[in-house]
Write a protein that binds this DNA or RNA. Structure first.
Length: 381
RNA sequence: GGGGAUGUGGCACAGCGGCAACUGCGGCGGACUGUAAAUCCGCUCCCUCUGGGUUCCUUGGUUCGAGUCCAAGCAUCCCCA
């Protein structure tokens, strides 16, 4: 395979003059990723309910898969045998695989640290104990063949004692180094992950260690949106990103998909986001809109002739599917309801990010930010 | 005409002497942030609501106490003529 010369380079196209926002392009073997960007989540090698061409038509440039889930089912060897995860799921654009650290550590009662890794129960599958080292995790990621893989990390929840978070930072740092040393696949970028909870000193320690142990082509920012309120998150997130993280590398705020948080985090200099929020809430009957969130299950939509959002160009809105119809689908638990809403919500976030990029490119992000914060939707997210 | 069965909250069902009454559906609302999630959680007789009032086809009875037992009536369903 011929690898492009600019592989994993991050070209910054514009820096907003009044905020820390920037727009750029990150180059991968399966295509360029414009930033800032939102990445739809397709945990088990599928964005639930959507065909790859539909995901592409919504404007998605990169999607997520999950190493842990795919390792459990159908197994990394099988995916490799089938030609890698792109071929397996028939998506030829960039793919980022999350390590599974989030999953492993979200069930603390079924997890224990070992000398060189973790043991945990595959609670969502057969419940058996699985042992993982950072090296194992890299081997799986390489078999899957994603364009970007994430280091194995420990994601502490909130609230957590500083001591506990400090240990998570130590462990994540050590694992980041081991992942860096174990990772060999040249067409796959490995991102380190900054942890440290709501403690600035721990965040900086985590970042410093990652910078020492390898030349990561990008950095994840983990351990936010784990139960803390928004202002608590911004207290450390904003200075961390705006003042301390390397400017020439993409910064990926993991697990955040609230539109208002996206807009604000971009102003601090975040480049990438992912979140299950648009797709999960879609399947549960919620639509994102310029009016805020709409719960399509509500009786008030039963006779509503309007589309989900007049300003939206998603298939559901372009197709003229009324709120009344989608209300009916959702209430009857018809598959199409979740499918239409998933497309709508993904499009909502991708369109938002398109406007974000345009605003940055034109040097008017401060204005965009102000307008967003004054919009009716801003307070509802 | 004869025989049998059943009547419980919007619907379907449970209940076999201590019940404002199990459960499911329906209805109303909420949650969802690197997907254990097309899931989960409330509320759903009335009121002046950490209490009170009326309920289980109707009426009467037995009992400290009846949706539950007895009697009569009404209604519905099934079988035989």
């Amino acid at each position: 395979m011929d690898l492009p010369e600019n592989l994993f380079k991050f070209d910054i196209i514009a820096n907003d003059p009044n905020t820390h926002a920037r727009c750029g392009v990150f180059h991968t073997a399966h295509g360029d990723i414009p930033t800032p960007i939102f990445m739809p989540v397709g945990t088990k090698a599928t964005v639930k309910g959507l065909m790859p061409f539909q995901i592409r038509d919504l404007g998605a440039k990169i999607i997520l898969n999950n190493t842990y889930h795919l390792a459990m089912r159908p197994g990394a060897d099988l995916v490799e045998e089938m030609g890698g995860v792109h071929e397996f799921m028939r998506w030829d654009g960039p793919i980022l695989t999350d390590s599974g650290g989030f999953q492993v550590f979200s069930h603390n009662e079924f997890m224990k640290l070992t000398n060189d890794g973790v043991r945990f129960r595959a609670v969502d599958y057969d419940g058996r104990w699985v042992s993982w080292t950072p090296e194992d995790n890299m081997a799986i990621a390489e078999k899957l063949g994603s364009d970007i893989c994430m280091q194995l990390d420990q994601c502490p929840g909130y609230p957590a004692t500083k001591d506990y978070v400090a240990r998570a930072v130590e462990l994540s740092s050590m694992w980041g180094e081991r992942c860096w040393n174990a990772h060999t696949r040249p067409d796959q970028a490995l991102f380190g992950i900054v942890q440290g909870g709501m403690h600035m000193d721990l965040r900086l320690r985590s970042l410093a260690h990652l910078e020492e142990c390898g030349d990561f082509p990008g950095y994840g920012i983990g351990g936010y949106s784990v139960g803390e309120d928004h202002e608590t998150m911004y207290e450390t997130l904003e200075p961390l990103v705006a003042e301390h993280m390397p400017k020439n590398k993409p910064r990926y705020l993991m697990g955040v998909g609230n539109p208002t948080t996206l807009v604000r985090a971009v102003a601090s200099g975040v480049d990438m986001f992912d979140c299950v929020l648009p797709t999960r809430t879609a399947r549960m009957g919620t639509a994102f809109s310029s009016e805020g969130r709409l719960n399509l299950k509500n009786a008030r939509f039963a006779h509503d002739h309007g589309v989900l959002d007049e300003r939206c160009d998603c298939p559901a809105c372009r197709g003229g599917f009324t709120r009344a119809y989608i209300h009916h689908l959702v209430r009857q638990k018809e598959m199409l309801g979740g499918i239409l809403l998933s497309q709508h919500n993904i499009r909502y976030l991708l369109a938002l990010m398109e406007r974000v990029r345009a605003a940055i490119a034109e040097g008017r992000y401060a204005e965009f930010y102000r307008d967003w914060m004054n919009s009716p939707a801003a307070n509802d997210f």
